[in-house]
Every structure is written in C-alpha cells, then in structure tokens.
Design a protein around this nucleic acid. Structure first.
Lengths: 144, 144
DNA sequence: TTCCGTGCAAAAATTTTGCATCATC
DNA sequence: GATGATGCAAAATTTTTGCACGGAA
C-alpha cells in the first residue's frame, strides 16, 4: 500500500518541474516512470535499456543527466550497495534493504523495530537512517 | 577499544594466508596495514597512494587484486555509499556509519540500540546488518 | 624449483563533458 | 523566439585482464 500512486507521483513531478523552471520532456518522464515502476533498484544501464524500448533514440548521457536532475530535485535517490555501478530508487518512504552478498539482489523491506537517532549526533545534523541487512537470497542459498 | 591491535591483526593475516596457501608478499602486507590504520574508508586510489609511499613501484592493479583477495578471505569489507568508487574497511566488528550527504565524509559509530533480525527473513538467510545514518557533517553545516 | 603474485600496458566498464541541434515554454 | 534539454562523440574515471618476469615457499 502506497501513499500515492504512479499518477500522483507523475503529477508531483510535473508540478515540481514547473516550480523550479525545468522543462517537461518525454525523456524525463520516461526515466522517472521506469523508476516508479521498478522495485529492484536498477542501474543506469538498466534504466537506459528500458527507456529505449519506448524512445529508441534516447542517449545514455541523457539518462545520466536526467537521473542527476531527479536526484537534485529530490524525487529519486542514488543508492550504492554492490558492484561498480550506481543504482537508483524512486521509493522515498523510509525503508530498508535486504541485500544478497552473493548475487547483489536487493529487496526493499520494512521493519517493525525502530531506532531513535538524535537530531544532533557526533556533530552531524541527522536527517534519517536506513538499515542494510546482509545475507543470501533464496536462489543463492540453494546453488551452493 | 579494540578486541585486538594492529599486531594481532597482522598475525591473523599471516596465519590465514598460510592456511589457504596464499603467499605473504610485502605488497599484501602493506595494503592491509594501510587499511588497518585508516579510519576513513579509503578508496582504492587512496590506498594506492599510501602504499606507494613505501613501495613506489607498486601497481594499481596489484592494489585492486589484493583488496579482492583480502575481501575473499574475509579480512576487509568493500563498502559503497557515495560517489563512483569503491571504498574499503578493515573494521569488521559490527558497527554503523554516519554519512554526510554533501561531502561524502563517513564516520564509524556505535549505537546503543539494537535491531533484532531473524535468521530467516523474507526467504533470505541473514548474516548481519548495518545502519547508515544520513545528514550533514559539522563542516558542511556551517558552509551553507 | 614451482607456482603464485606482480608490474606493465591494454582493454573494458562506467560516468562526464562539449557542442551543435532540437523542442518546450 | 529564447532558453534549456538532447544526441552524439570524445574524454575522463574506475576497474579488469593478459602476459612475461620475479620472488616466496
């Protein structure tokens, strides 16, 4: 259950772009839509391949630039757990990650337990936290 | 306070290498020593520069290969929070990270609170977890 | 002496940038 | 029409690999 669906998120995207003075281009919409639909923290290459299905002439550089823009305006997050390439996530609600140490598969999870982080901690002004749980996914457990 | 000092860690390294049949080379020792001394999760390039001070002819490729080896035998961990390059950590005790979202500074921290993760969770066999706390470091708070 | 590990250089993979053209506003 | 975004290609950065030589066991 989500607080808002894809349609609402896209409307928010359009509103935010207008507010800041960014143009709404098909490529930007496509990149954001791909991220909204995906649940597996895709790499830039993954997103590029997916966007290309609809816009065959899209450039990888545009995908990079668009993701940078989306991150800057706070609609997606860059995450990096495993491997050499950046991954992106449009799920902004506070959530946690279950990571397979063997194959790199990442799943979003919720925890019923919470940690209380002071607003000021070791001199830092804190904004949030996320828990990474490491282990082996079902597939990697069997294929020893 | 650590469970064992640098000397003990190096002895463990030597023991582990002999056990597996890996040769103990000056380069391997140097890379591991650099990581043991550092507290700031250095990049491969950082480690390379540090090792080069003692072994000017060391190759970057060797540093990459050594880090891979050290990770494989479980003496260091590859971490990846920010930016495009991998970082390494020789601190294997369960600990957490305080990350500056602006400059990428990472600090190790301990938390007095704990989270209980079941051994089996969403089909995964879990091995441990780590908490990433995001915010702004002291320096980045002032330089707005 | 036997291999494994290293250095070097080339290749591969990932990300960024410059610039002319195009499309949104 | 103005300006910002895109596509293409080149460059920069990061990581991996092949191969001959040298050094640890």
């Amino acid at each position: 259950m989500q607080l808002s669906g894809t349609k609402e998120k896209l409307e928010e995207f359009v509103r935010k772009c207008k507010e800041i003075g960014l143009k709404i281009t098909p490529q930007r919409l496509a990149v954001y839509e791909v991220l909204l639909k995906s649940t597996n923290h895709p790499t830039v290459e993954d997103i590029y391949e997916e966007v290309k299905k609809r816009y065959p002439y899209v450039s990888l550089a545009t995908v990079y630039r668009t993701l940078e823009t989306l991150e800057r305006i706070g609609l997606v997050k860059r995450v990096c757990f495993w491997g050499n390439s950046a991954r992106y996530d449009a799920n902004l609600s506070e959530h946690h990650h279950l990571i397979c140490e063997r194959c790199g598969k990442i799943e979003d999870v919720n925890l019923d337990q919470e940690i209380n982080i002071p607003k000021h901690f070791h001199g830092y002004r804190t904004k949030g936290y996320s828990v990474n749980i490491y282990g082996y996914c079902p597939k990697c457990q069997s294929s020893t």
